[in-house]
């Protein structure tokens, strides 16, 4: 199984990016083996609809779940339509997030965790 964790860097020790649509990277992690693959967020350069495009990229990459800080309504709707489960409120390192997921400590979201555009201009 592959899960997608939004990340500020390209390693397992990088910090989880608190935003979904405007995350720098998506790390596709296999929680069993901790092997991973790095995807640059291709939607970052777009002016609008970023969450939707990012969701499309994650769905196409075959992720079954997204672990992130916050996920807006358009991205959430798209991920849901693509059969991807969203876990928001995730922080710390990518590795910690993957371990928490594997241990079953995360709860899946039933709705978007933030308003549209919440990730704009909030680079941390």
């Amino acid at each position: 199984m592959k899960i997608c964790i939004t990340s500020q860097g390209q390693t397992l020790d990088a910090t989880v990016d608190p935003r979904f649509g405007r995350a720098a990277y998506f790390l596709l992690v296999d929680p069993e083996s901790m092997s991973f693959e790095v995807l640059a967020n291709q939607a970052l350069s777009l002016g609008g609809g970023v969450g939707i495009q990012a969701a499309k990229q994650v769905i196409d990459a075959g992720a079954e779940a997204v672990l992130t800080g916050n996920c807006g309504p358009n991205a959430f709707q798209t991920l849901q339509a693509g059969g991807v489960t969203v876990y928001s409120g995730v922080s710390g390192s990518v590795r910690q997030a993957a371990e928490a997921f594997k241990a079953g400590r995360l709860t899946a979201d039933v709705q978007a965790s933030s308003d549209a555009h919440s990730g704009m201009d909030r680079r941390q």
């Binding site: 939607a43 777009l46 002016g47 609008g48 609809g49 970023v50 969450g51 939707i52 495009q53 969701a55 499309k56 769905i59 358009n74 798209t78 339509a81 693509g82």
Partner: peptide, 9 residues
């Protein structure tokens, strides 16, 4: 679409 207004899954 550059605005993400339509997405095909």
């Amino acid at each position: 679409c550059q605005y993400g207004a339509i997405v095909s899954l």
